[in-house]
Each structure stands twice: as structure tokens, then as C-alpha cells.
Design a protein around this nucleic acid. Structure first.
Lengths: 343, 343
DNA sequence: CCCATTTTTGAAACCGATTTCAAGCAAATT
DNA sequence: AATTTGCTTGAAATCGGTTTCAAAAATGGG
């Protein structure tokens, strides 16, 4: 492999100093037209590309945003990541993505990796999907980075000193409950997710609260925790549909779990929506792919990506940003809910 | 924001030289136990994390692999990326992911970004999803990077000097055709994808060839190009199912397109598999989520990720690797194919 | 106990950029 | 023509690590 071409090589060949080459590259200072052209010609000739590692040492910025995401295979996160990437691109920023994959140690090491690469800011999407929240060592680790690098997450971690874009799932739950209740559902279940995950806990809390405000009994057997996968959705279905008195409607923690529920219901010859109403979260493209099309909650992803990146860069530039912001989701009504069958 | 802690700060506080701190960090040279402990204590105390940019300047390795992927929202790519990430992790490598998003200029700039960050190798997954292949400037751009940095892709670009992990879709097509023909299908369509994309072209070429070896007519109206999305699948269905003599089976370029086909068929009250048999590619989790479950082609993703990373690192280390390797896929038979309805 | 050998250590150079500072030079002012 | 002003330019310092090299310290053998 060839030796790397450096700014010194360019300088020598163009008959100028490295400083001048740097000035041409960064365009941050005036250079006489004649030298500028001479330098540019040599740059073009060798397709010279400056070493970012070297640049970053003297420059204070890397123009790279780090994203630590729970699992990129989840279309929800994939969408958010892509929207962040687009939003970053519009501002001349690039993006470096790492996965946590539900593995706390991988999450920590990838967070460190992003920091070690001195990304300008870190966006964290739905990580520590287990009880790590209660681990002070974890919180300390995150803080040691969040204190130095702008840190934005969806969902607030107790004790972590960072910015947060809250998603107002409570209002989404309200809309769902109003919708289901107006159809006449009275036994409604909530399926999937772990209560240790903040976003899930918020949904469940509001769900229970809503039961109360609507004078419905709270039956803890209608609340099942699980992973965030299709198979986990199937497991939830096993538990819920096997109940002596099964629910007539299930709110799933996300579209993926809802798909598992739907599939398992089919297997048992329970028809959606005639026998069972189903609601998901995230409005992934999956929702439109299954039959019946899934009623779900949409988050306005372009806005979400825009806000995450915008906040990250504002914090970086020392502009004032509220520590907590909120995104309001919308219920998208499709075909997976119906009036419950008369008893 | 606090000033960065450096190796010099650690050295001063531990009462040693920066060299010694470096030796403790990298573990590449001997250090007496007493000094090692003194240094480690200070490192722990401050949670010191070395600046990778600085390290990379003197070290020749970054321990980071770059992945340029067509679209991370496609679960096929998401899976491959994650498998690469796992394989890389096992070897002490991290991964930096960028999206091309079907945008040639974004693809080029992200390729440059990865190079500028001096990743140790670049893995390219299904990019230049348009006619960029015929663009000499593009080829030259890729080559200028592939000549310096180990470059591995799935699918070979004409003129690009890099390593390639071929996916033997021809054998998959053979298996599919044998399967469909054995059921009695005679009008078989191929839907989705662009012929300018090498992997798609390979599939289509073998598809046509197989028609020939089996003495079937080649009807060009049974070949429709499209994007790689669910909606594109729906469009394909419009064209194919609206034909005077529609096909009894459709091979889709991937699962996503197959899902679109399935959905559109449902809309038209055409039942899969009774009225229409469907085969996908990629064996994404989507295949098991829809009803009927999709018959599709699996690639052994863990092996795929392993081979990509393994090849990348071998090239990097100057070990001999064949320029071209092959992965053999397997047909996964599920419920989306059946004997065609008698005329 | 002394000399040869091995191990540990720190000073200084280096990686490839940017940036400060002062010198050099041209144009403008008197 | 002499002096001031304003640009352009290059030398050198810097960023935060690693590595070479030689000195210093520790170890071992006779």
C-alpha cells in the first residue's frame, strides 16, 4: 500500500508552504489567486484528502456526530438514524453510528468509542434496555462523557446530566384509549417492553392511569413484559389470549411486537380486527405491510431527527437550549381495530 | 466544557514520563509493576480516555472498520451491518457506519468521509444503486481510495480494484425455479430491482437463462424493474397482475418487494399462495411476520459478516486472500408457494 | 565485588494537519 | 521619494498520542 500523501507533499510540489496549502483547503484565510490555483491543481492531481485525525488534533471540531443506538435492525431506530443523518448532512455534519445491541458492556464500550473519536456530540437512542439505570457505575460512566461532550437522548436517564427530547407518549396513550373506549372495548391489555425502559414505563403508567380515569378495573394479568421483537410479541399473545377472559384489544409497545401478536392471533384463528383489536407504536413501514394494516402512533421522524441534531449542535455552540423538549406523536388509524364482538 | 485530560496530565500526577503512560495504555512494552500501578491508579481516578485522533497519527492502525451501506433501513443491510459489527468486535475492532441512501453524491462524500477518518478498511454493501457504474469519474474516485485502503464489497464493480464477496444468487435462482417448476408453474415473473445493480442483474440473467434451459417462453412483460421498497412492490403487482395473462408465480428481488406484491395481491382479492405463488430474497424477519409466511432465500448472515470482516483484516495485514470469494445461499421454503390453480 | 547483560525509563522526534506571529511586499498616502 | 497601511506568506509552535534511542537501573555470572 502506498504511503499517504500529506500536505507537505502538496506544498513541495506546488512550491509553497504547508500553511498555504492548509489555507486553501480550509478556505479560512485569504490566498492570492495565483498560488491558490497552483495549490488546487496539485491537490486535484493527487486527489489529496486531508487526514481528519491530524486535522482534528489542532482544530477543535470534528464535524462528526456520534449516534449510539439500541439496535439498528429495529426499523424505528433505523428511521431515526437516517433522519438524523440527513439533518446532519444539511449542516455539513457527518454521522458515526454504533449499536448497543441490548448488551450493556457493548453499549459502554461503544459510548467510549464515540468519545475517544472525539465526535462533536453524542445522540443516544433508546439504550440501556435493561436495569442498567439503577447501576451507579453506569450513570457515572455516562456522566463522565456527557460532562465533556454534548449529550442528547430520547428518554431521560435518572442522574444523567444531558439534554433530552421527550416523546409525549402519554398523549398517544390517551388518544389510543379514547379511540378504543369509544368503540366499546373494556378489557384492554398492554403488551411488550420492559418497565425498566423509560419510554415503556411512561406508556404503561399512562395506560394504567387511563384505566383509572375511565373507571375500568386494573387487571395485572393484562400487562405483560417482553423483549422488543416479533417473537416476543408471539409470547405475549400466548399469555394474553390464553387467559380465561382474554382482552378484546391489545396495545403493543411497538409495531414489531404488534406484528408478533397479530401473527400469533392468526395462528389461533383469532381474527384481527373482528375478534381482537391491535394498536402499535412507531408507524414503521411494517404497519402498512401486514393485513390488516396496523393502527399505530407516528412520531414525525423528520422533525425528530431535525430536533435531535439541532439541539446537539446548539449545545455544542454554546447556544441556549432547554434541557427538555417534547415531541408530540399522532395516532394513525388504519384497519387493525374494530368494535368488539358482542358477548 | 472542561479542558481535555491528556497523557501529560496523567504522567505528571503519576510522577512518570508520558512514554510510560503510553506503555501502560497500549500494553505494548514492559513496565515495572510499581509504576504500572501508579499510572493505572491515576488513569482510573480521572477516567482518562486517550484521544484516538492523536493515537491514530502515530499509530498506523485505527482499529475501526468503515461500512458504507446503501440504506440501513433495509433489514437485509441492517442485519449484515450488525453481523459485521459483531465479527469486528470479536477481533477488537469497532465499526463506523455511513449511509448512501441511493444518492450518488452522498455515497461519494461518505466514502471520502470514511477514508478521511483513515478507517483501517472499508466494506461497501450494495451501493451505487443506479447507473453510476458506467461513470468513469465514479470508478476513479472509488479506486483512488481502494488503492490505499483495503476495500471489500458484495458485488463487483467493473473496473474497481477491490476484494469481493460474491453471493451466488444464480444457484438460489436455480433452486427457486426448480421448486416452482416442480409445482407446475409455467408463467413465472421476476419483479423489482434495477438491472444496473449488479446483484439484481445476476439474478435476472440466471432467471432468463433458467427459462431457456426449461424450454419456457421468455416474455419480457414478465420482467419489471423498480425500486427496492414495499411501494415499489405494489407497483410491480399493478403491472404484472393487470396483464392479460398474469403470472402464476412471481420471484421478487427481495423480501420487501415481495411484501408489497403480497399486499397488492390481497387488495385485488388474489390469494397467496392459492392464486399466486411468491418468493422473496434475504430471509429478513419480515418473511416470518406476514401471512402466509414467505418462502425466501437465506444468506447465513453470521458467516457473511464473518467473511467480510475477516477478508478486510487479512488484506490489511497483508495476508493472502483470494480477490473473489463466494457465499452460497439456501432456499427457505415456507407457505407462500403452492400448485397453480388449474386453468 | 566487579563487569556484562538485560530490563526499565525518559527525552526527543514524529505523525499530519492548523494557527499564530512576524516578516515581506505591494499599494496608498503625504 | 519616504512612510504608512494592508495583504500575503512561511517558520515554528501546537494538538495528544506513539516510538526510537540511549541512559540508567536492575540482574546475573564469575
Amino acid at each position: 500500500m502506498n504511503k499517504e500523501i500529506t500536505i507537505y507533499d502538496i506544498a513541495r510540489e506546488a512550491g509553497v508552504s504547508p500553511s498555504t496549502v492548509s489555507r486553501v483547503m480550509t478556505n479560512r484565510a485569504r490566498v492570492s489567486p495565483s498560488k491558490r490555483k497552483a495549490v488546487q491543481d496539485v491537490i486535484d492531481k493527487y486527489q489529496f484528502r486531508p487526514n481528519m485525525m491530524a486535522r482534528r488534533l489542532s482544530d477543535t471540531r470534528s464535524n462528526v456526530l456520534g449516534i449510539l443506538v439500541a439496535d439498528i435492525r429495529n426499523p424505528y431506530y433505523a428511521t431515526v438514524v437516517v433522519e438524523c443523518e440527513l439533518a446532519a448532512g444539511r449542516r455539513g455534519y457527518s454521522v458515526m453510528v454504533c449499536n448497543a445491541l441490548g448488551n450493556p458492556s457493548l453499549e459502554e464500550s461503544n459510548l467510549t468509542l464515540l468519545y475517544n473519536h472525539r465526535v462533536d456530540a453524542i445522540i443516544q437512542l433508546g439504550c440501556r434496555a435493561d436495569d442498567a439505570v439503577s447501576d451507579p457505575a453506569y450513570v457515572e460512566h455516562v456522566n463522565s462523557i456527557a460532562n465533556i461532550t454534548p449529550f442528547i437522548s430520547t428518554g431521560k436517564l435518572d442522574g444523567v446530566h444531558g439534554y433530552c427530547l421527550h416523546i409525549d407518549d402519554a398523549s398517544a396513550i390517551d388518544a389510543i384509549m379514547e379511540y378504543l373506549l369509544s368503540m366499546g372495548h373494556r378489557r384492554i391489555a398492554f403488551a411488550g417492553g420492559f418497565l425498566s425502559v423509560e419510554s415503556t414505563r411512561k406508556k404503561v403508567e399512562r395506560f394504567i392511569y387511563s384505566l383509572g380515569t375511565n373507571q375500568l378495573d386494573f387487571d395485572s394479568s393484562l400487562l405483560v413484559e417482553s423483549e422488543y421483537s416479533v417473537d416476543a410479541g408471539r409470547c405475549c399473545a400466548e399469555k394474553l389470549l390464553g387467559l380465561p377472559s382474554p382482552p378484546s384489544a391489545i396495545v403493543a409497545v411497538n409495531d414489531i411486537v404488534a406484528l408478533g401478536l397479530m401473527d400469533a392471533a392468526m395462528q389461533r384463528n383469532i381474527h384481527v380486527p373482528q375478534d381482537l383489536s391491535l394498536v402499535g407504536f412507531d408507524n414503521t413501514y411494517l404497519a402498512k405491510v401486514v393485513t390488516p394494516k396496523l393502527t399505530t402512533v407516528d412520531y414525525n421522524y423528520p422533525l425528530l431527527g431535525e430536533k435531535l441534531v439541532d439541539t446537539a449542535l446548539k449545545v455544542l455552540n454554546g447556544e441556549a437550549v432547554p434541557e427538555d423538549q417534547t415531541i408530540t406523536p399522532a395516532l394513525i388509524i388504519r384497519d387493525s381495530c374494530a368494535f368488539p364482538r358482542a358477548k
